[in-house]
Structures are given as C-alpha cells and as structure tokens.
Nucleic acid binder design. Structure first.
Lengths: 243, 243
DNA sequence: CGAATAGTGTCTATAAGACATTATACT
DNA sequence: AGTATAATGTCTTATAGACACTATTCG
C-alpha cells in the first residue's frame, strides 16, 4: 500500500474462467464465441466485468459461472488462478483480468437453453498447442490453468472434483490419465490411491454396472492435501497393452 | 470477457510485495510503517498503486521493489502471488491488490538512507501466528506467500534464490530448515540435493572459511523444476542432537 | 591434540514399477 | 464357455531415513 495519495488510473476489472471437465476421457475447456469486437467470432474464455456494487471477486467468479455456464459454484471446485495485467492485452484499453480455475464433473451435454447457449466444450489439446487461436491472452490463461490442474492432481484431492459424488477407481484413474496425458498402470494406481490416507472413502459397498466385474464405489474423502502425493511419472511408463 | 458493454466501476489497483529473506537463520519479511491513514503507524507490506501510464503489473512490482526496498528485481526471484479483492479490505474504498512474492538473499542490514528507510526486516513468526497485527488483509497475504514458498521449495529450485551466487550445501540446508521450520539430517540432505539432477552445480572447486573443514561452493543449476522433489517430512524427524 | 564442520558409506524399512493371478460380472 | 473388467498378490529395484565413520580445517 502506498503512502502517497494521488489520482488513480482507470482500470477495468474482468473475471475470466477456465472451466475444465472430462468428456469421453478427454480434457475439455468451456469456450464461448465472442459476439462483439474485439475478436468478434473468436473463441474466448467465459467471463465478464466486475459489478460496481462492491462485489467480491470470488463472488463475481461464481456469478459468471452461473450466468455463462449455468453451473453452481457451490458444487464445483473454484480457485483463483491469478491476475493478468499486460497493458495491451485488450485493444479497448486497460483491462485487468482475474482468472479463476473451475473443475466440473463430466456433464452429458454442453449447457443449452440458457444465457450460455454459445458455450461449447472444446478439447484443450488444440488450445495448448496453439492450433486453435483464442481471443486476448486467453491461450496463456488456459495454459496456466491446465498446468495448475496438472500439478494439483499430485498433491491434492482435486481429481475427485472431476468425478460425480460417487465414482470408481477406474474413473478416477481416467482423470489422471486425461489431465496428465499419459497412461498409468491400473494395479499400481489402485494400490496407491487406496493407501493415500483420506483421499477416497468407500461409499456404501454399492456397485455399478458395466461389462465385467462390478466396481466398488467411492466418494471424496476428508483429506484435501495428499500424503504421500500421487507422483506423476517423468515419462509415460511402458505404453504396451492394457485397455 | 463480457459480451455486454456498460460503465465500469472505479477500482484502484495496488501492488503489494511479500519480500522474504533469511537473517540469522530465521525467515524474515520486509515490512514498512504506514505514515498515513488508514492503519497509520501499523506495519504493512511495501507496495503502491499502479502507474497510470499503462504500466504492466509485473513492472509495477519491480518498480515498487526498487522504490520501497532498494532491491533490483532483475537479481531477485519475483512471482505473482494472486489478487486480493474483498470489497472491504481497504476502508477508503474499492482497492484491488495484486500481491507478488519476492525472495532475496540475506542482506547484512535493512535498507537505509533510501526511500525505503522505514522498511524493516521482521521475523515472519509473529506475523503468521497473529501476534503482530498488519494493516489491511496483509497478514493473509504473508500467510499465502510463506505457504507458496514452503511448497515451492519442494518442487523447484527456489531455495537458491535465498542464497548468494555461490553457497555451501549447509547454507542451502538452513534455507529449507528456516522456511519449513524444522530440522533436517545434514547427511541425507547432502545426498538428496546432490542427486537431484541440475539443482546445484559445483562452482569452481573453491571453498570458504568457517571453523571446521572448508566446504565446497555451489551455484544454482539450470534446472528450475526438481526431479525428484525435495520431500518435506511430515513431522520433524528426530530432533535429537546435531548442530 | 581436540573441537568443529564437511563429506562418504552402510543398513533397513518402505514405496514404486512391472506383471501374474484370482474374482465376478456379462453375453 | 468366453470375454471383459475389478481387485489382490508378488517380485525387483530404488529411495528415505537413521546413523557410523572418515576428512580437513582451526586453535
């Protein structure tokens, strides 16, 4: 905080959302088609400006989540990613964006019929590689969001945020595989996840139907920080066979 | 980014700095005494408002680092911590603060004779525990900054930012001990640090004088992300003897 | 010499990775 | 039966933690 007092520069505050989910075992991000200049027609992150009624930025993020994606923040993981403030990031003038990362369980269809009709789930891969160009500096924000998710999978129970209330260990494994972009050994993963303290707890010895043997259902445990962590292999460990 | 266009709320942008260093093996943070209301006389983080000439926020952080602490950002580790935007965090009105974390090697004396005369190195412990009350939400920011440093010690070469260009392994160990607040076994630490790929590299087989056998000097290696990480023990592993 | 700090070696418990085997459903 | 997926077990190798020991300086 400065000691001097002087006239402030006018700065617009935006809140942008990186909403990640899994669709058919692929990591997707929610993008909207811009309807106005600049970058009209280009894909962009959902977001908006801060209300002028003294709204908290975290509340603004939750509000945009509802408005643009029809998602309830209270049921999602939502955390701040950081502030993006390069002076030229918005051609209209000085706009400082606070980016938030949200994790949602796989939804059957992209939201529709709401204000979020223009929102579409898009695979992250073309965005990360730059083959799909986003408006503003949104590619960088997605990059940072995915990187945040990747590292948090190791040390926190974030992976369960991609799952429904009850899930199988195989489903949890697919989260790790999709976000990290590599294959894991199911047997070792099973052991690892079970032995990591309060990570997941058996949900009433229920089961669910697929093809083979029914799997036990689990739900997210009380532990948010994992001891020991789920280590991410340096290189894809032997990609021969399995599934 | 929002599709609608409407009048923006006036929001002031501040940049606040959590500058950490080691002084006599204790983690310290740089605090200034506030000269004006609100919180006049209370300790606070160094910082200031964004310039109105279209300054980048990272540049603003570097500028404040120079102005308030007489430190050169180019020689320091400097990273963004996050945005703090609770509506009531500043009684004067809406002020959104972008916090930055800076790591400096142990400086012999607090900066003096400069604009930063009011700045003093303060042990973090009273701040973390709440025994020392800071202005605004600065206690929370310090908490987040220290937590960030603690976790980054594990997975990145951040520890070297606390050291001079050349340092001994024992000095590096003291960084880990001070930031984590626990004791480590010197022999195991030696092994671990040496075997972690490009973490530290021998600086010309020089040495330095203390009391016992001279220690080899090392400098920061090319690797910024550590494989494998330097694991932080869950509990202080046997605090009997040594040093 | 003895004190002090630096650096190396060794042992053991535990975890990671590879992979075989058994279990329980479906058609 | 045959196929598919879930769950458990076993083996080998690597790593963490505890700690003995050697090395090199100082007074």
């Amino acid at each position: 905080m400065s000691q001097e007092s002087w006239s402030p520069p006018p700065v617009l505050i935006a809140v942008d959302l990186v909403i990640l989910t899994l669709r058919s075992n692929q990591l997707h991000v929610l993008l909207v088609q811009r309807g106005i200049e600049p970058f009209r027609g280009a894909p962009a992150l959902p977001g908006g400006f801060l209300n002028n009624d003294g709204e908290d930025i975290a509340v603004a993020a939750a509000r945009e989540l509802k408005e643009e994606a029809d998602l309830e923040a209270s049921r999602l993981h939502l955390e701040q990613l950081g502030a993006y403030g390069k002076p030229d990031r918005d051609p209209r003038g000085r706009v400082l964006s606070i980016a938030y990362l949200a994790i949602a369980p796989g939804l059957p269809e992209p939201v529709a019929g709401t204000d979020a009709a223009a929102a579409t789930w898009t695979p992250v891969e073309p965005v990360l590689s730059g083959r799909l160009t986003l408006a503003f500096d949104h590619q960088q924000i997605v990059l940072d969001g995915v990187e945040r998710a990747r590292t948090k999978l190791e040390h926190s129970a974030l992976a369960t945020a991609f799952c429904e209330d009850e899930f199988t260990i195989a489903e949890l494994q697919r989260v790790y595989e999709a976000v990290w972009g590599l294959r894991l050994d199911p047997r070792n993963f099973y052991r690892k996840v079970q032995r990591t303290d309060g990570f997941i707890v058996p949900a009433g010895s229920n089961r669910r139907t697929t093809n083979g043997r029914p799997a036990r259902l689990f739900s997210a445990g009380p532990r948010t920080v994992l001891h020991p962590p789920i280590a991410r292999p340096e290189k894809s460990p032997a990609d021969k066979g399995d599934r």
